[in-house]
Amino acid sequence: MPRSILFMCGMNAIRSPMAEALAKAALPKGTYVASAGVRHGERDPFVDVVLDEVGLTIGRHQPHTLDELEDDYFDVIVTLAPEAHHKALELTRSMAVDVVYWPTPDPTVATGTRDQIVGAYRAVRDHLAGLIASRLAGRGQVG
Rank of each mutant, 00 (worst) to 15 (best):
63 P>D: 09
36 A>C: 15
55 G>K: 12
113 T>W: 12
6 L>G: 01
53 E>C: 13
2 P>A: 15
20 E>S: 03
53 E>A: 15
14 I>E: 04
84 A>Y: 02
138 G>T: 08
56 L>A: 08
116 Q>M: 15
24 K>Q: 15
6 L>N: 05
122 R>W: 08
43 R>W: 07
88 A>D: 05
129 A>S: 13
106 D>F: 03
44 D>Y: 11
85 H>L: 01
11 M>G: 15
122 R>G: 06
78 V>S: 04
47 V>T: 12
20 E>Y: 09
94 S>K: 10
59 G>L: 07
70 E>W: 07
110 A>Y: 07
1 M>W: 11
101 Y>W: 05
84 A>R: 02
127 H>G: 03
127 H>K: 08
87 K>M: 11
79 T>D: 00
124 V>G: 00
137 A>M: 12
74 F>M: 06
125 R>M: 05
6 L>Q: 05
137 A>N: 05
78 V>Q: 03
79 T>W: 03
118 V>E: 15
106 D>M: 07
75 D>P: 07
70 E>V: 10
108 T>L: 14
38 V>F: 04
44 D>F: 03
119 G>E: 14
132 I>W: 04
34 A>W: 02
36 A>S: 12
82 P>V: 06
131 L>T: 01
38 V>L: 10
24 K>V: 12
68 E>L: 14
132 I>F: 05
62 Q>P: 05
17 P>Q: 13
38 V>D: 01
109 V>H: 13
109 V>T: 13
51 L>S: 11
94 S>W: 01
45 P>E: 11
91 L>C: 02
105 P>S: 05
85 H>P: 01
56 L>E: 08
111 T>K: 14
75 D>H: 12
74 F>I: 03
2 P>Y: 10
115 D>W: 04
72 D>E: 15
32 Y>I: 12
13 A>V: 10
16 S>Y: 08
66 L>H: 14
112 G>N: 10
86 H>S: 09
37 G>Q: 03
88 A>Q: 02
77 I>P: 02
74 F>P: 00
128 L>E: 02
38 V>P: 02
141 Q>A: 14
39 R>A: 12
14 I>K: 02
115 D>R: 12
96 A>I: 00
